[in-house]
């Protein structure tokens, strides 16, 4: 048998410190939530609503859920409005590794009529402010198949 031909790069001798390379990918199934991302390709914001008539929560869930956390009943898919208002915002100057957008991207949380949650998203144009009316835009040409395929611009 031969010795291995690939070696770890030594970063320091004292103490001995080496570099462990990692280059593989993770497979990730969105499962029942996949419909949401597929909806974005058709310029639709798909949310879910509890099908249990006895359930007190009548509002839409966005991010969607497949089961209602309040009563464990299945949800149905419903198209959410494509306008909302900015609930809060921040400009991220130092994002972490893997961020697909440049530093300085404004992140927002949204209030949307009839939706019980406050979706986190980003603004593609304009400057966010509290209560600013915004409308949805969709990345349909080269979708990333992530939440980044939905963004907002001033309405």
């Amino acid at each position: 048998m031969e010795w291995p031909t690939t070696a770890l790069e030594v970063l320091s001798e004292k103490p001995l410190t080496v570099k462990n390379p990692k280059t593989w990918h993770h497979t990730h199934s969105y499962g029942g939530w996949g419909k949401f991302y597929q909806g974005l390709r058709e310029k639709k914001i798909l949310a879910t609503r509890c099908t249990n008539p006895e359930c007190a929560e009548k509002r839409l869930w966005l991010p969607p859920r497949c089961e209602c956390p309040d009563c464990w009943h299945p949800m149905e898919w419903v198209e959410a409005p494509q306008t909302g208002t900015v609930y809060t915002f921040s400009t991220v100057t130092y994002p972490g590794e893997l961020f697909k957008l440049p530093p300085g991207t404004p992140l927002i949380s949204l209030e949307i009529e009839g939706v019980g949650t406050k979706l986190m998203s980003w603004m593609k144009e304009g400057k966010p402010s509290f209560g600013l009316p915004v409308k949805a835009v969709f990345n349909t040409d080269n979708p990333t198949h992530t939440i980044l395929d939905l963004a907002w611009v001033p309405a």
Partner: peptide
């Protein structure tokens, strides 16, 4: 990781949204 992490990959940003509000 499905609906948040891609938005900045940065916890400080998620706190910043709360902080602004």
């Amino acid at each position: 990781k499905d609906f948040e992490s891609e938005l900045g990959w940065m916890y400080t940003a998620y706190y910043a949204l709360m902080a602004q509000r």
